[in-house]
Design a binder for these strands. Structure first.
Lengths: 168, 168
DNA sequence: CCCTTCACTTGTAATCATTCTAAATTGAAA
DNA sequence: TTTCAATTTAGAATGATTACAAGTGAAGGG
């Protein structure tokens, strides 16, 4: 763990704009803490939670407060630069990739990967119940390669139910 | 609030089987607390959280413990009789309708309605990253009729971002 | 370059949902 | 009945997130 980020692999980043630029663009004050957080998030595909972000950034930036992480995440989220995912029931996860995409989460270890693919999700007008729809997100559930190996012998019925079934 | 349930409207229930039958079928002991919870959940389309279930059932069943609600929900979930939704970042919600379906949540008041519609969600093999997919759930985000009315004048940009943007 | 100011940061307390625990209770099988 | 494991219960414990009050520093104006 030495590089700029703890990526899951080589990934294409969002359309340019380094941390400082983002702050200026959003009208946010340019503080070192923010820059460090932004930098950690930039191109990160691990969908980290607040605590993880804190741990990672605090390493390079001693004295950082967890509260600052939450504050920063909140403003980025409010400004639309960050997606706050509720796909993991244990905690909120953050995704710097703001272009619409979906997620695939392991029901055993909670690892999340992005699904960059467009689906046709037109809801029949009759089912919209008068809602004005602004977005959508698909959560795919399954077993990641690692867990699939390990769990092969577990009760098979645990996988029934067709949908987002979580392990005890 | 007098009827059997606090439904959102007339709804078709899951394929028969009253509370007692469900317990027997699942090999669960038939306790009055469980029956009361099952009864409350039966046909309920409000996607209640644990606290709400507790409050509702405790009304008719004084002495009920919140822990029991959590216990019961956990066993029903494990047995596949109940879906545990993480669509609401504030808390887990429960859905007795176990047939695959999707949800539409109001980004302002968190009201959830079911979307009973089948979508074609084939993920290109190349994007599956080796995961064995067991299910999926689409979360549609938007404004419910009520909030849409109330919020009409709010900052329009809050609705940008394309996806699950939550109100501060 | 020096002020001034208010957005930010910080540490900590408070809150909230959920889980854990250990003891008491009770279905249900024998 | 008797028995015993499953279940219920109150309350403590945990973990994530939010709230708060006081201190700090980035940034614009002079």
């Amino acid at each position: 763990m030495k590089g700029k980020n703890t990526h899951q692999g080589p990934e294409k980043k969002e359309a340019g704009l380094e941390p400082a630029g983002i702050c200026r663009l959003l009208g946010l004050k340019l503080t070192p803490q923010r820059l460090a957080i932004l930098e950690y998030l930039d191109g990160n595909t691990a969908h980290p939670g607040a605590e993880e972000i804190y741990a990672a950034v605090a390493g390079r930036f001693p004295g950082l407060s967890l509260a600052t992480v939450y504050n920063t995440l909140a403003s980025l989220r409010d400004k639309g630069r960050l997606l706050e995912l509720s796909i993991d029931p244990a905690k909120r996860r953050y995704d710097p990739r703001t272009r619409p995409h979906h997620h695939l989460i392991c029901i055993s270890c909670s690892r999340i990967v992005d699904i960059e693919h467009t689906f046709d999700l037109e809801i029949p007008e009759a089912l919209k119940m008068g809602y004005e729809i602004t977005g959508n997100e698909i959560g795919f559930y399954g077993l990641c390669p690692d867990c699939n190996k390990t769990d092969a012998k577990r009760q098979p019925d645990i996988r029934q139910g067709g949908s987002h079934v979580r392990r005890p």
